[in-house]
Amino acid sequence: MRHFEIRLDELRKKLLEMSGLVESSIYRSVQALVEKDEAQVRMVMENEERINRMQIEIDDLSTELLLLQQPMAADLRFLTATIKINNDLERMGDHAVNIAERAISLMHEPLIKPLVDIPQMANLVESLLRKCLDAFVRKDANLARNVLTSDDEVDHMRDNIYNELVSYMESEPSAIRSCVDFMFIARNLERIADHATNIAEDVVFLVEGADVRHRSEARK
């Protein structure tokens, strides 16, 4: 294996390590909410520090390889996709922290109703993230396209949760604080799905060289 390929492999491994941390943060932030478990929140915060460090490491290595190797074709697409995916993963980590913070705020409040919709939405969002990362690892553009079409479902779930929470707040003003926290959580989950969509678009570009951003026909 050439020196350059060894470095590309090193970069790929770092990105996968970071995505593992982000997946874990998202899962734990929702668990913190469901289980009312502060230990999970602490782990999300610890992950966050590592994710931030890794974001810088991945950026540095990508820039170094762009500068020193002046890559072309698939290597160039891999490096530009990695830089963008890195950014999306870091933002996902931030959203997981936001969810964990809301989980703390909700920890000492009685539940306004059984938690069903948020964990369901979280499941879907986590599965989207897993799919787009699998698509990245396996260089599978079809799987990535599958993520692009599932994003609407997440938006739909968020809208339903919003509407339900608004009705609840109208009938039960004392629950406004909790409802706002849940709204923020739904919003953060929806943003995570948006970043997963970005990653899926980058995977299509990486594999096929086709830019499917903002082009509904090309995404199919």
């Binding site: 050439r2 350059f4 890559p71 072309m72 074709a73 698939a74 290597d75 160039l76 697409r77 096929e208 060289g209 086709a210």
Partner: peptide
């Protein structure tokens, strides 16, 4: 050619493989 060549030979040459 440099971002997304159609032929494998081109890809191999420009990526140094």
């Amino acid at each position: 050619i440099f971002k997304n060549p159609a032929q494998k030979e081109t890809e191999d040459y420009i990526t140094g493989r």
